[in-house]
Nucleic acid binder design. Structure first.
Lengths: 347, 347
DNA sequence: ATTTATACCGGTATCGTTTGCGTAAAATGG
DNA sequence: CCATTTTACGCAAACGATACCGGTATAAAT
């Protein structure tokens, strides 16, 4: 079955005009008499005429759609970001095509290829945890695709970037731990290649250094698959809890890692924050309702999505190539809650 | 800036052939000599040729894209469902365009209009909480748009429907309350017009009846805006807690309502389940980590998305109009946790 | 009376691809 | 060696909309 819409030809035939006249009448050209315009407009309205966007795309060589690559839609951070992207896109008459990498490198490559082959006008992307080689992205970019790097940013030049101050976020979270009396702080980070991982680990180590705490490199753990699967995080936690100097606090560097750490502690009857304190990166809106209420670093996901979409669309619609590329860095928020509370008297 | 891709014309020019020959060679037509085919295929591969989907769409009168209308992306149920839809779409070569109604009727109408004007091949939709008049949907459907009704289904004929057994879900949840000794059970439902609301309220009332508990109509509350905003739920809760016979249990009939009820109880220092027990519809994957761990009715969102997408694509690709429309009803799962635990001795 | 201006509108190419039809050259048959 | 078939390719139309390039009719100016 097919959905048949009225075309400019139908109008022309019905009114005994040529297609060009109808087209001009619809676009309110000065060359068309008021009477003809009125007739055409009336007929178009009555028959609910909409210009065929596909024909327009072919002619204008643009599709009025933007692609979004994220690792997973069903993730609070990304769904909020997509929300922001979608809201801007809708305002500007673009539609949004979403693809997921599932933190898988192959799927990321094919997804980007897919977006390009669907001739999107531009792409907003956050690379997968498995991605250490960015050449597929760079190639697309070099071939002229409009792209905005987002969240997990890439560091090649001439590209807009939208991210948060991950260094500061991790620094503040770590400092918060230290101020509350925790000193043996483990850091469970995402895959090592990711920008966010590097920055967060740097913030973590800097905070330790600035507070004269010796860094134990073994206290830093990496999730090669982004902590998407529970076992990855559980293994790390069990490994960490078996070390001689058990960590007394854990900084979980992603949404999934955070919830999986919590789940692990619950299953293993590890009390938070008594045995292990926890601060996690998360954008869920009910972390305050968890047991214990969870200290989180939250990111302005919706805002990031909006900004990324605005930058991309501006670039798409720009007549000449953009020269000045922005590197937007937003602030995170640290919410201090029970999961990282200062310990009561401990001799 | 623009992303320029190679076309069939470029190949033709480069190889001194006509476009039709190239086209046929690429489609492996028997009319083309093996040598020519090889030349064309090689050149195409080397230059990474991809057929322009927009030109194809124009010719074939199909866009290979499907629209999805949900009330909100950043909602665990819908993001999981979208995940399912996207996975099927990707397999079958479709892309997914997502629009949100934000539970707003006007936005729903314009979003559907938008999808139609973007010439999607079909639409999977869940109506907004504010929608009581379905004529905009019905019109689109009558004009030949392929549509699958999903989650909040509409009841007009000749349309595929994918939903869960909401009646049974609410019946089981209510029965669970009763078995655990709760008798004055409030039901906070979504907007009254929605199919899910009707079915859930019916399941709730049936369970009461079957256990010889008199139904107090005042114990049923409706959220006109789907509980999207906190105040809507908070008002209902404060109203409920002011009644002479305070409810001892609350059945929260949507994701947002559930978390907002929890938030209200926390802010007002109402102990769950001591003062009020709670069972909520939710698809979050950390309800077991909440304080108290939350009893939930969860829906197979991913599976629902997959089925809806499969039905829709089958319908799109069907040569003749579909006669048999399916009404897929999946089962929910009731997870019994602390928030609805039986009370200890109470004289 | 001839030119010029203006108002209004049509023809046609174009975007990239597919496809029915036409046809030259090669191959086959007698 | 001629007639017929087969092979292998090109031409052109079509999808819907736009825009350049025209053209005609009427009216005004020379």
């Amino acid at each position: 079955m097919r959905f048949e819409a009225i075309t400019i030809k139908d109008i022309a035939k019905a009114l005994g005009l040529s297609t060009s006249t109808v087209s001009r009448a619809l676009r309110d050209s000065y060359e068309i008499s008021p009477e003809t315009k009125e007739k055409v407009l009336l007929y178009a309205k009555e028959n609910n005429y909409r210009p065929n966007p596909i024909a327009l795309s072919l002619k204008e060589k643009r599709s009025s759609s933007i692609g979004v690559l994220v690792c997973e839609i069903a993730n609070s951070f990304f769904s909020q970001a997509i929300n922001g992207i979608e809201s801007v896109a809708q305002e500007k008459g673009y539609n949004v095509i979403i693809v997921q990498s599932k933190e898988d490198f192959e799927k990321e490559v094919s997804s980007l290829q897919y977006l390009a082959s669907r001739s999107v006008d531009g792409i907003i992307f956050s690379v997968s945890a498995e991605t250490s080689d960015f050449s597929h992205v760079q190639q697309l970019h070099a071939r002229g695709m409009n792209m905005v790097s987002f969240d997990r940013v890439v560091d090649f030049p001439d590209i807009h970037k939208v991210s948060v101050d991950n260094y500061k976020a991790a620094y503040e979270a770590t400092t918060h731990f230290i101020k509350n009396g925790f000193t043996n702080i483990a850091c469970i980070a995402n895959a090592a290649y990711l920008s966010i991982t590097k920055e967060r680990v740097e913030g973590y180590t800097a905070a330790l250094r600035d507070h004269n705490i010796k860094l134990d490199p073994n206290n830093i753990y990496y999730c090669l698959h982004g902590g998407l699967i529970y076992e990855e995080v559980a293994d790390i936690m069990s490994q960490a809890m078996k070390t001689k100097q058990k960590p007394d606090a854990v900084l979980a560097c992603s949404d999934k890692i955070t919830t999986n750490v919590m789940r692990y502690c619950q299953q293993e009857n590890i009390s938070i924050p008594k045995q292990v304190a926890l601060v996690g990166f998360s954008n869920l809106d009910l972390t305050d309702l968890l047991a214990p209420s969870l200290s989180v670093v939250s990111q302005p996901a919706y805002e990031m999505g909006r900004i990324a979409a605005e930058l991309l669309i501006k670039q798409i619609e720009s007549k000449r190539p953009i020269k000045d590329f922005e590197d937007v860095v937003l602030a995170t928020e640290l919410h201090q809650r029970a999961s990282s509370e200062k310990r009561k008297a401990k001799p």
